[in-house]
Design a protein around this nucleic acid. Sequence first.
DNA 1: GAAACTGATTACCTATTGGTAACTAATCCT
DNA 2: AGGATTAGTTACCAATAGGTAATCAGTTTC
Lengths: 122, 122
Amino acid sequence: MKKQAVCNTTTQCQSRILAIKDAMEILSGKWKFHILGTLLLNDKMRFMDLLREIEGIAPKMLSKELQDMEMNQLITRTVIDTKPITVEYALTAAGRTVSPLIDELAGWGTAYRHTLYNKKDA
Amino acid sequence: MKKQAVCNTTTQCQSRILAIKDAMEILSGKWKFHILGTLLLNDKMRFMDLLREIEGIAPKMLSKELQDMEMNQLITRTVIDTKPITVEYALTAAGRTVSPLIDELAGWGTAYRHTLYNKKDA
DNA sequence: GAAACTGATTACCTATTGGTAACTAATCCT
DNA sequence: AGGATTAGTTACCAATAGGTAATCAGTTTC
């Protein structure tokens, strides 16, 4: 009799795995957390503001990631008829739900760094 | 006077951004969360067990990700002198700290899916 | 003696990610 | 007229991620 998977075949595990896959896909890439984090601090920001706040991002990437997140309904894009035209980006309710996730990630990163530091001391 | 970044230049923000960057780097890739999640369920697993439990992963990827995480001290690798040789992988204390992060991610993915579903109903 | 199981490694290939640099069109300021 | 600001787009390129398939060496089972 061939050995086979056990624990990860339960319905519970399967839907959990699926949920993680979903989350990773939607929040994938180098910049999404930084953009979302910046929008969490300001609630309405224009393209050039984001470009200035997020160090190192190129307009191409910012544009692409914003489109991505608009499609996934994490942010809204509003064209305002000023001269020259301005565009406002803001989080949706769904977008705001990433806040605890970002906190957790930042917290983990910080704790991890401390762990390594203490180990080196020992 | 040129406009410049404001909020993301504070020391607080900078270290937060750094922590997120760290976490993303260490936990990057398609498979790490799945491997860690599986190890959270079993605490000691052999290579072939992981290969069987994690659907779709190739031995090459499993091997590479395990090495990666061993280097970052999230897991331990123990060779056991049975015949044929077996190798046990287990989470370290640091590795176990990803548990709440995985929960948060899975929770977010699930909630996100429900949000979309409800919107389609409306 | 042949096949299968152990834990991998290697070569090869493709697709995605992400970066650089230049450019656009409209409008405003000097 | 010249330059800056708005919000992007385009072409091009390099590096990385990740997949497939084959192979290895030792041991055990049929």
